[in-house]
Amino acid sequence: MPVFHVVVCGGLVPDPLQTLEPVQGPAGWGLKNESMLPAILDPWAASALFEADSLARANPGSRVWLVSAAPKAKLQQVLMALAQKAAFELVAVDAQAGGFSDAAECASALAAAVNSIAGLDRSRLLLFGGWESASRGAGATLAILGEMLGISEQFQGVDQASPKPDGSLEILERVEGGRHQVSLLSAPPALLGWATGSLPEPPNNPQVGMLNMRSAMPALQKAAPSRLTGGGLALSSVELPSQRRDTRVVKDMPEDQVAREIVEWIAEK
């Protein structure tokens, strides 16, 4: 049975049900009331964490770390819910890493955190994360981090990673046209940027939560502060699109007429 050391990298993002508005402050662009907005673990990174947890449980002896660069207080809030969903050891970096930060700069902060993990066996390393964040949406941070850590096998848009008894993994990556590219990775180390994966969100497990929090609280306390300064990214403007349409709400129209309107509309060039 193979043993994996899975490091999951995931930032925090505002709950997608919130309304977001860009504002320019002395430190550059950010979101209005950013510190007040309820946050969640970046959704695709959350898929990665759930997949890591499942992989570790199926392969005894494996370990999972969650590396997150986020404001400490926010991370603590998010952990309250997240810690019940999957078992992990937290490595926290106290940093404000939102949508307007630079991917390479963020990757440097994460690299320092990964390099500080005691007991991490690089020959067993699977570096996980979301293939794109819900903030920058660049698909760059993880790849640059992989490069900094010297990981030569990288996969993006991963929906499945199935280990074989010999330690190899079959990996499915999203490609165009709703298909997957299937690859066989003979052995770790490797980087996997996850898309949705194939697991539902796990139910809450208070016991796992208690265990996680016991190690997470000291990790939060000793979170190294990291000041991200923008990494040379200049943003001359950020604005909300003028997105409100003048919706025509059609009530009480017979289905036949609705259908005719739709068919005509489809045919319009």
Partner: peptide, 16 residues
Amino acid sequence: RWFYRQRMVGRVSRER
């Protein structure tokens, strides 16, 4: 490019 999953749009440049 767009930020926060297409919620806002920005103009970026770099010296590097």
